[in-house]
């Protein structure tokens, strides 16, 4: 099923607000809640998208391939889990840095429609060891 870009953009905006609140309040619980939202987003069950669709019932003019935004949610989840690990181990700078990284990605998506996770995907693939197994022609 194709994704509704308006709902994704709305989700990115809410994510931005939540992550900014995490930085202000330094609340691990709020970050944990956002991590759950990211995990649901990977499963294409984002509550933010559900919320959007509850209020906006019109069909979108354009739809999107759901894979890029899913990958972006996975990147967000990795950052959020890293942040939580920081809080759990008492490494607050790690928690803040990981949250800020996730916030940066969410903000770029919300404000500019620019998918940071998608941009770095190729860079990650370029440098993964599996890539070296490829047979060059």
């Amino acid at each position: 099923m194709p994704a509704d870009p308006r709902a994704l953009r709305f989700g990115a905006a809410v994510t931005t607000l939540v992550l900014a609140s995490v930085l202000v309040t330094e609340s691990p619980w709020l970050l944990a809640a956002q991590a759950v939202v990211f995990a649901l987003g990977v499963a294409r069950r984002s509550p933010y998208v559900v919320l959007f669709k509850a209020f906006v019932t019109s069909t979108p003019k354009k739809t999107e391939d759901p894979r890029p935004p899913r990958f972006a949610q996975l990147v967000g989840l990795v950052f959020a889990v890293t942040g939580l690990a920081g809080y759990l181990t008492g490494t607050v700078p790690l928690a803040l840095a990981a949250t800020a990284a996730a916030l940066l990605a969410a903000f770029l998506d919300a404000a500019f429609g620019f998918c940071l996770g998608c941009e770095i995907y190729l860079l990650i693939r370029r440098s993964t060891p599996a890539a070296n197994m490829e047979v060059s022609q």
């Binding site: 931005t16 900014a20 609140s21 930085l23 202000v24 803040l96 800020a100 916030l103 940066l104 903000f107 770029l108 404000a111």
Partner: peptide, 10 residues
């Protein structure tokens, strides 16, 4: 940090 990050993002 909550302000600096969106500023950097901009």
């Amino acid at each position: 940090m909550a302000l600096a990050t969106p500023a950097l993002g901009t």
